[in-house]
């Protein structure tokens, strides 16, 4: 059984690396989109809502097929890794945007006013008053999104990336090591995802600011 363990370790590293990259970019996209929606920026707001609808209503697998097999036909060649990160970011960005947006919208407008009333600038109120509160509200959803996105990386094998699924499929197809392959697959994902899930639960409890927001 240990014979193939290193394959899984390498695959898990790849999954984690691409996943983390995609998640970080998703967070940036999400934050930018959420701010555009929060400030109701004209035109941009429209673009963001089209993006969110497209992203949320199509599967990652199809997005990847389009990026990896479709785009090269008009001369846009992107590596497997590139497609994986772009696809995951395109998908994750909309989920993160919704998480940030719901956090921002949960803060009463009067909090902004009371910050302004003591002479803080708009930017200062955002930084010291609105963001910290919005973030603590968003955290549970953000964490759920992180887990969701790591799970979504399991389709990366479809664009020829040697991820966990790819290794498992190889072992099943080539060597008929079905039991081992599947067991290792489950263990690998548990090792990847359980710690994140525990950290998420812990963060959620901690970030509630001593019970604020209940």
């Amino acid at each position: 059984m240990g014979k193939y363990a290193h394959l899984y370790v390498d695959a898990a590293k790849l999954t984690l690396l691409l996943g983390v990259a995609g998640i970080l970019i998703s967070l940036i996209i999400g934050l930018v989109c959420a701010l555009i929606q929060y400030y109701r920026a004209p035109v941009l707001k429209r673009i963001v809502s089209v993006y969110i609808e497209l992203s949320r209503n199509t599967p990652l697998l199809v997005q990847l097929f389009f990026l990896y097999f479709g785009l090269p036909k008009i001369g846009i060649m992107i590596s497997s890794e590139g497609c994986a990160v772009i696809g995951l970011s395109f998908l994750g960005g909309s989920y993160m945007a919704e998480a940030f947006r719901s956090g921002l919208e949960a803060i009463e407008k009067s909090q902004m006013e009371s910050g302004l009333a003591i002479g803080l600038t708009h930017a200062q109120v955002m930084r010291h008053v609105i963001f910290p509160q919005a973030l603590s509200i968003s955290v549970p959803v953000l964490c759920a999104n992180v887990i969701f996105l790591i799970k979504e990386t399991s389709v990366f094998s479809a664009v020829a990336l040697a991820d966990l699924m790819y290794v498992a499929k190889d072992l099943i197809g080539l060597y008929y090591q079905t039991d081992e392959a599947l067991l290792m697959l489950v263990i690998a994902y548990l090792i990847l995802l359980l710690p994140i899930s525990f950290v998420a639960a812990w963060l959620e409890r901690r970030l509630r600011y001593a019970g604020f927001g209940n």
Binding site: T58, P59, F65, G70, L71, K73, I74
Partner: peptide
């Protein structure tokens, strides 16, 4: 049609979108 992948996968993308979006 060597560039059909672009159009076909593009079409699949929008078919999924058209199936899911109204439900959302």
């Amino acid at each position: 049609v060597p560039d059909s992948a672009l159009w076909i996968y593009g079409a699949v993308f929008f078919l999924y979108f058209l199936a899911c979006w109204p439900i959302s």
